[in-house]
Design a protein around this nucleic acid. Structure first.
Lengths: 341, 341
DNA sequence: CTGTTAGCGCTTTCAA
DNA sequence: TTGAAAGCGCTAACAG
């Protein structure tokens, strides 16, 4: 028994067949007789041969591997996107390397370096919140390694982005509440420098306008949408009169606000209806009464990956920015659904 | 400007320094003058050099990379373990490749193949539920690639495993309920062929014995611990008389049972106290009244990774099984804590 | 301290 | 259809 790993040369020697033929056989080339193929395959399994991808990647200058960087894999949204990416990659014969930046710029840049030095064919990334500069990804561009940004848009004019239609989502969420008889709708908005939250807010405003409802800017509560903000927001709601609905720009704040309000004896959704951007599963468990806007997470993964593979195979990194905007999806839950399983 | 990627030879030529010196400089070898190092580093950044890890891995026959396979990255428990692994790996200078098996054996085996063909130095795995055979990981052993099993033990006699002390956890959970005055404690157990659930159950039984409580086997309800099972279990509880507590072997069943019972007007934890294996964060949000047993997730990651690195560096795959058992951690929440933020 | 040289395991012309 | 030979980019003896 040989000590190290078996190579094609070992098979080659054992059979008296040249190693290039062995290589071709193992890659199922049409230029090898079925008979020799069989012989080689048999010997390969007999010896416990295992291909060395490193060597073949080095030689061919193609890794069939893409890198994915997300802030945290534990967030349901991102893990769903990753599932979408993996499915698409699997079908296309690509390997996927998953990394988390923990929303930390330094770490993110180190990950990019690592991925590039491992010669991934392309990168999909949802940038960290600290990433804001114009040339944070110059090394990719120098390398001509395609990179696609998803969920969190980045330099739309220059890069390829995959995002959802935030304006439309905000509009539909608000419209949904209006059509259900709500007139005094509070909006939990996020940091006002963020384009994303601005667009959601504009959707909210547009819906109010369409139905000729008065716009009261006291009803727009901006915060960082953390749990503690949800509590603060809830307190503010109690101070306002006749609020009958909330459209929250994310689920975290919505949920903590709901818990707080329930605790105060407010019936949800009898007295206040909620719509929030959210992960379907979590909010279904936590609050059956919370309707949600899905970010079409899985689909975002498949779309982004498909786009990336196209860029890789055409070897044409798009210079001018291209943004793919996905439809949002409003998920309605009836308040009769006390338990959703 | 050169079209392809810059190599050490490009730097070598530009400076008239031999490429091996360049290589040494880039690896910060002590056998190069600081002066030449500086020159080389400067030229490297100037040309936009980026090391090709594939080549160096191939050459050195060491990848400084480990593979991690978990059923799903979206489960809080696994993503915490992964964080623990990543921190440890980062400190030790290892890269980490994260993969999810989706609890599917075929997929798991394909992932193992891929990792091995990429010549990872070692593998950490929490096996899929479908993985039960004796020689599912023979290819690893042939390869002499260290593999460590965490959370879900696998052939304890032969392999290295990292698990928590399930017996103790079951014992402490039950004892906690007893010490709080509960006498009629139902146990939601899992599949009875599973060692893990058997050990948790034995802990439960041991605690009852210690406090001289009568053991009623009608109080041990075995199921697959899915959401729907939780509902069924809850119905069974309502049929039993004088149940005042539940120790659930996982959180999913516990939560759905609680929701169902609350819906039926049962007050929790006034009438029924719950302890469940669980993820801290989730249950804190969903059910403040649910006390939980933590599986020391992050720590499990660091321990497993440290163990693996030791095996890799000693190049001694342990032949006889070695099992590291971690302490469980009971997290008590007072029922006064209505909102935990 | 630096250069020469060989080769990791694989693929791919080119030739037979 | 198969073989011979070169080389992907890097590292590591060994020599100087």
């Amino acid at each position: 028994m040989k000590k190290g790993k078996i190579t094609i040369h070992d098979i080659s020697k054992e059979l008296g067949i040249n190693s290039s033929t062995v290589s071709r056989a193992l890659n199922n080339s049409s230029r090898v007789t079925q008979k020799t193929k069989d012989k080689i395959l048999k010997k390969a399994t007999e010896l416990g041969y295992q291909r060395n991808s490193l060597a073949s990647k080095l030689r061919t200058n193609k890794t069939n591997t893409i890198g994915v960087i997300v802030p945290r894999i534990s967030r349901q949204f991102f893990s769903s996107v990753i599932s979408g990416i993996e499915e698409t990659a699997y079908d296309a014969g690509y390997e996927v390397i998953i990394c988390q930046s923990l929303d930390n710029l330094e770490r993110e840049q180190k990950l990019i370096e690592t991925l590039l030095s491992n010669r991934v064919d392309g990168i999909l990334i949802s940038v960290s919140t600290q990433t804001l500069g114009k040339d944070d990804f110059n090394n990719c561009k120098q390398n001509e390694t395609p990179i696609i940004f998803f969920d969190r848009p980045y330099n739309i004019e220059e890069n390829t982005n995959v995002i959802i239609d935030d304006f439309k989502a905000g509009f539909e969420a608000t419209e949904h509440l209006i059509l259900n008889g709500c007139k005094n709708i509070v909006h939990f908005s996020g940091p006002q420098h963020s384009e994303l939250y601005k667009r959601r807010k504009n959707g909210y405003l547009a819906a109010l306008k369409k139905y000729n409802l008065t716009i009261d800017f006291n009803y727009i509560i901006a915060s960082n949408l953390m749990k503690s903000d949800g509590i603060e927001n809830a307190k503010k709601i109690l101070d306002l009169s006749k609020v009958d609905a909330v459209f929250s720009a994310n689920d975290v704040a919505a949920i903590s606000a709901m818990i707080y309000l329930k605790d105060k004896g407010v019936k949800i959704p009898d007295e206040i209806a909620f719509v929030g951007f959210s992960n379907e599963q979590i909010s279904a468990v936590i609050e059956p009464s919370l309707s949600t806007i899905s970010q079409s997470d899985f689909k975002m993964g498949t779309v982004a990956a498909t786009l990336l593979f196209k860029q890789i195979e055409q070897k044409t990194t798009i210079k001018e920015g291209y943004t793919k905007i996905l439809e949002p999806k409003l998920i309605i839950r009836n308040s009769s659904q006390k338990i959703i399983l």
